[in-house]
Design a protein around this nucleic acid. Sequence first.
DNA 1: GTGAAAGCGCTAACAA
DNA 2: TTGTTAGCGCTTTCAC
Lengths: 346, 346
Amino acid sequence: MPTIKDVAKSAGVSPSTVSRVINNHPRISSETRKKVKESMKRIGYHPNIIARSLVKQKTNTLGLVMPYSTEEAFADPFYSEILRGIGSVAQDKEYSLLLITSNGEQEELEVTLKAVRSKRVDGLLILRAKSNDALLKELKELETPFVVVGRPEDEKNNFWVNNDNIESTKNLIEYLIGLGHKRIGVITGDSEYIVYKDRLEGYRRALYHNGIEYNPNYVIQTTGHHGLTTRYTKELLESYPKLTAIFAVDDLIAYGAILGIKELGLKVPDDISVVGFNNNPLSQLITPALTTVDINIFELGSTATKSLINIISEDPKEYYHEIVKTNIIVRDSCGGDKGEVDGNGE
Amino acid sequence: MPTIKDVAKSAGVSPSTVSRVINNHPRISSETRKKVKESMKRIGYHPNIIARSLVKQKTNTLGLVMPYSTEEAFADPFYSEILRGIGSVAQDKEYSLLLITSNGEQEELEVTLKAVRSKRVDGLLILRAKSNDALLKELKELETPFVVVGRPEDEKNNFWVNNDNIESTKNLIEYLIGLGHKRIGVITGDSEYIVYKDRLEGYRRALYHNGIEYNPNYVIQTTGHHGLTTRYTKELLESYPKLTAIFAVDDLIAYGAILGIKELGLKVPDDISVVGFNNNPLSQLITPALTTVDINIFELGSTATKSLINIISEDPKEYYHEIVKTNIIVRDSCGGDKGEVDGNGE
DNA sequence: GTGAAAGCGCTAACAA
DNA sequence: TTGTTAGCGCTTTCAC
């Protein structure tokens, strides 16, 4: 493989001149530029990025910290989609993407810190926000630029990009309340993840603002394992048969819930209304099509990436965050409360 | 950030000795080794991978060529899952993963070749097999190690890992035939992708081996856009109401097909049986739960990665490929042929 | 077993 | 506008 020296020789100039041509240095005669470019083409030269990274002390690479996860969590197309968003701007800004995967909290920490310390990446995108996150603390000590997709606990002292999960959920639940629902069950996920905390908070606020008392027994925490979701939903509905609606904090959880409802011999939306969250592309294909919230995953990814690149290059003095808007997608999984109050079938 | 020189100074040895310690060189006294390791820890030294890559002419990085894709194709958890498989062995063998994304054939080619020429990666994992693939040709010229996940056209002259799609599909269709089905519609995907070609071939072979004539009108090609899948399925069934089963080449396509069947007022599996492929985790959650083929995506990824690393380090003289086994997962979406022949409800 | 020196391929002062 | 030189942080002969 030819190096910059070979080009220099072949073009009859010095290596530094070749370097200047590569880097579009302004003070170079168009004649030399042309000559050099021809030589590069002729001998098939391509700059060695590794060498450049070494001298520039910059890799032009972004690390993507993927959540370590069970099989099922990974089945979530969320990650494919956010990768698209990230990839599109990284491509555009000439950044490469280093995928950082792991099989648990400890490994994630080790592997991520290693990538930073060994200077493999210029910055990191953390694709989740957790409570009590040791990774963020370590990263701050290393003074690595990073942005969190999600709302970190210490929201004032981090860069992050997120939806307004509290407000979005509040709106979603108020849609349900507007339909006449008052006893709304919740199937939520691991409360270690702040996204689920926030969605639960949005649920509570919606109830509060509408004078409905919050009943913690209506809230079930599941583990992301679909089979369990189905079972828990059935148990919930058996214990509280007066529930007229279920709010699942994620569409995938909603799928399991719907299955549970069906297994009880109940119908969605006639007997029970169901809403999900995230607008999984499959949600329009299931029966009934699921009412959910579109969180604009692609934009979450692209915005976070733009931010990170900005932070790397500008080193802003103040932390900031960005909110990506959401939209309720009303489909067929909700009906009015046709419970005991009016009981009129259609 | 401390360098190898700082460690050397602090430990009172030469940089080369430190390097030897880092690389577990055998001929080093355990005393010096200990001394050096202590110094490294004390001053917080971590080797700079970029510098090492430059001198070793090896990055220990694998490039992952993701299919450029529309939103919907990306919604496929296939990619999340294969990333898990790849990540797990890469992690284990101390390789990093560079994600290569693009928005079209041309960009994919450019971006991938750039990663190779600029020496960013030691090898590539190509996550799809297409007909007439310009990328593979270029890659061979560059003599980059790569392995294809899928069956490349020129199967004798490439490294690849795949399921036996022909045989697996044949088995699946024979399961349907065993249930009494003779007129089986097919909803397939872009025939540019060899996986779909192979599955169609498996379908044909199953018919042939069972003395059933192949009717090309029963085969519909769709584009991956779910809405269209639904529509095409309806059109197919309206044109050929005698079809008693539908074979969708991918579970995602099956979901669209089932929706179309429902919209026609028909029932799965009572009126029409449906089978899919890939065992998408959601397939157990839909109603009816979908009969499909588990292709062991994780293993596809891990096997391909092991192969690639082997090729990089061993430079084998002969091309080879590996087949990952599949399993039919029988669920609730198929019934016996209850069409005009016997017509007995249950 | 350890050190000195050269060099991986590139960029960036500093000169000219 | 261009060339010379030094050096990014590491590994690797070659001596000793």
